[in-house]
Design a protein around this nucleic acid. Sequence first.
RNA 1: GCCGAAGUGGCGGAACUGGCAGACGCGCACGACUCAAAAUCGUGUUCCUUCGGGAGUGAGGGUUCAAUUCCCUCCUUCGGCACCA
Length: 923
Amino acid sequence: MIDQKLYKPDVIEPKWQERWEKDGIYQSDIDHERPKYYALTMLPYPSGDLHMGHWWAMAPSDARARYMRMRGFNVLFPIGFDAFGLPAENAAISRNIHPQKWTYANIEKMRKQLRSMGSMFDWRREAVSSDPEYYRWSEWFFTQLHKHGLAYRKKSPVDWCPNCNTTLAREQVWGEDRHCERCNTPVIKKELKQWFFKTTSYAEELLDFSHLDWPDRVRLLQTNWIGRSEGASVIFRTEQGDPLEVFTTRPDTLWGATFMVLAPEHPLVKPLTSIEQESKVSDYIAQTLRQSEIQREAADKDKTGVFTGGYAINPVNGKRIPVWIADYVLMTYGTGAIMAVPAHDQRDFDFAIKFGLPILPVIDRIDGLTKSFVTRKAVKTGFAEAVSKSGITCNETSEGWEFTFTAEKAEEYIFTAKEYVTDKGWVEVIGGKWAFVFEKEIIDWDSVESGQRILGLCQKLCPETKNYKILMEMLWQCPFYRDALYHDAYGTMINSESFSGTPGDQAKEKVIDFLQQRGNGEGMVNYRLRDWLISRQRYWGAPIPIIYCPEHGAVDVPEDQLPVLLPEDVEWRPTGESPLKLHPSWRYTTCPICGKPAERETDTMDTFMCSSWYHLRYLSPHYDIGPFDPEEYDYWMPVDTYTGGIEHATMHLIYTRFFHKACRDMGITKGPEPMIQLRNQGIILGEDSEKMSKSRGNVVAPDELVARYGADTVRAFLMFFARWDMGAPWSSGGIEGASRWIRRVWTLFQDMPKQGNPTAETLKNLRRKVHQTLKRVTHDYESFEFNTVISSLMELLNEMVKAADAGATGSAEWKEAQELFLLMMAPATPHIAEELWGAIGKPYSIHQQPWPEVDEEAIVEDMITIVIQVNGKVRDRITAPLTISDEETRMLALNREGIQKYLEGKTPRKVIIVSGKLVNIVV
RNA sequence: GCCGAAGUGGCGGAACUGGCAGACGCGCACGACUCAAAAUCGUGUUCCUUCGGGAGUGAGGGUUCAAUUCCCUCCUUCGGCACCA
């Protein structure tokens, strides 16, 4: 008897796990009588140990899947392993274990650990991406994409990790020093011929989230990642006649394009480079490449660049403009070339000032800010006074006068300036109007040429300005002007021939029409998103099923020959070459078309390929006439709830959406999206608030906790101790609270019913609390607020303990309370719930019971507390029946003794009554 | 620099739609049980206080009878992007 009273998770947990497994209560099969629910948690990588992060991700997801099951859904909650990838291969190199052996041993260990969690995984549907029966279909998908023109091969510079000896996707390169995602080694560049998937073909559709219930945060991350920008492609020509295409978001500034900048890697750099500039250009290219190897990003932001010696023709005005190269133009974005509009782009402005390139404003300022700085020798006495008559005030400094006014005043100002200007200087107007007033003439600065003429005149009058190459450089020296020289807002076009005067809101559109008519360009949308590089120079991945034939090129391995199996006997040399390249018999084969000698592709696929469709393989992991059984697909897909870490927002979650859409267009899948609802959990940090890692020694091992407290306690604590979507640093002390709670529950259910005479009120209150809790818990499971599920159950337990003390244990209300309590805790702590469910004489299994219904009537409080405030401060409370009217409330409140003293005999100015809640008396 | 999220007791966190801030738990203190300790149970626990009250949700302002909640400015932390044409 005493034994029975002790809570022994190490006994009851394995007992129930075995029973559930034996009875197959978590096997999910097609059942058209019940609504389906596909709950999916992101598949783990078999690193060898199930860590706290896995539990944190999976246990609450499991609880919710269980809850949905009790709600009457036919729930599929599968699991599997993302079993290809680098760590296995690194282990092979460093510890001389075959990746396969390492991986499968890890999987075996993790299966055990996962089972100890007591989750409702349907293990019959487990899929392992490194099984030939799995990667056969990864290869098959590649073939399909290739056939439909969505997979292609191109030579391109790739990021290369010298430590992992592999290509890295852009997404796998992190930080300012551009280090490898996995091992933190700084990456270098390498040119390789690689396979890509055309994710960019789906860029526009990927921006449409209208079918998805996904967190705003993820949608925003994806939107930024895809990086759509609207503008135009404009075709310039080099002087030699080669077309030079640029992408610009500001076609309205075309007349201000005073030079061009190409990425150093741009193919036209060579033909454009003049003999004189050749060495400088090649030096610069070399320097850029070297820098990118080290820390190009971290380098100071000072613009660097070199003139090629070549020129291009601006298609709108036929102007001949110099072509430069600079590292701030990236070959990987747009066309790798830009038209530089220094007056309206910060980077171009900095570049032009630094290298003395012409700057011409072509967009009017919307704020009209106009400035003029006048030196003493430039004007006759009385100038400031004369100007002040126009209502323009000035700030006098030791060197002269600073005038700030609006564009409307400019003409009047210039008129006055003309009267007062001397032959020793000039008066300039900049910002809302660009003009220089000399004694002999007024020159509008409306073209590059007039700018140069003005500068020439200034240099004659003021020899100190001799060093300036361009007018803007001279103005830039004056700090007073800085905020008026450059802007990037849309505004009325100026200095743009017949387009001058076009309002800012129409400018872009009109210029694009004009370009289109003349065949010089067109409206265009550009994306930051790039195609997905899937080639990996590694062994432990799904082989890319391609054979290179000298005659027929890249030929797909025929479907009936899939999978291309990984050879098991490979040699490990950390040379950077895939071990597949070193394998003599595997590599050489014959062409499927002509039968002549040919070579296999030796690269394998990125593991994101495997994880892009695992949710489909779960449906029928052993199906061998297709990647999945269409019948299963039609029943289960799409995934209803997908849970996992936010860190996959821009990689996995974009790839899997792309994959689904591409497959849809190939007739393989259906519907717009693969996963309808997405919820992200936060991250569990170490107790020191740092990321858990072996090197920091702050890793919390779930196995130890399970051994000490039991899985139910660990599950309950994980659900309770922090907001699931936020995560938090681990708190080792806190688990005691969950443990205590579990044991108190156990104790309460072990106690024999006491004799007692509970009052009707006690029983009513108990029932009310039970149903209030049910309402809350139901809501919280629905909305992934797991911490308050547990805290509500803790509150209920406290109430039940009180009710038991008040003698309620023999009542029907008590019985109901016990039942509902167990049903509510069942998803969170499945083992103890099952055990106690049996103990109170209910039939096995609690996990096959329906979720209870809230009795709304039982929830209603009959007596309510109304707060009485005076001037917004709580001064008193009254208890009143629920049915109390506002007028009664008012009278009651005003007549309270405790309130009278705050009123000091004064009549309240206003009394606000919130029915049944609060009275606020304003005095 | 740009975009986004968060900031509440000693700690994790709670608070529905603008209506009693601090639920629940940890920790701590005191008490009961015990030879003793652990466990368990009970009581208390935002701060200040002259014990009347007063202050208080990162800081400052605003709207309102009433603000953790709405608006503006700023600070800090975290995440993402970053010469994106």
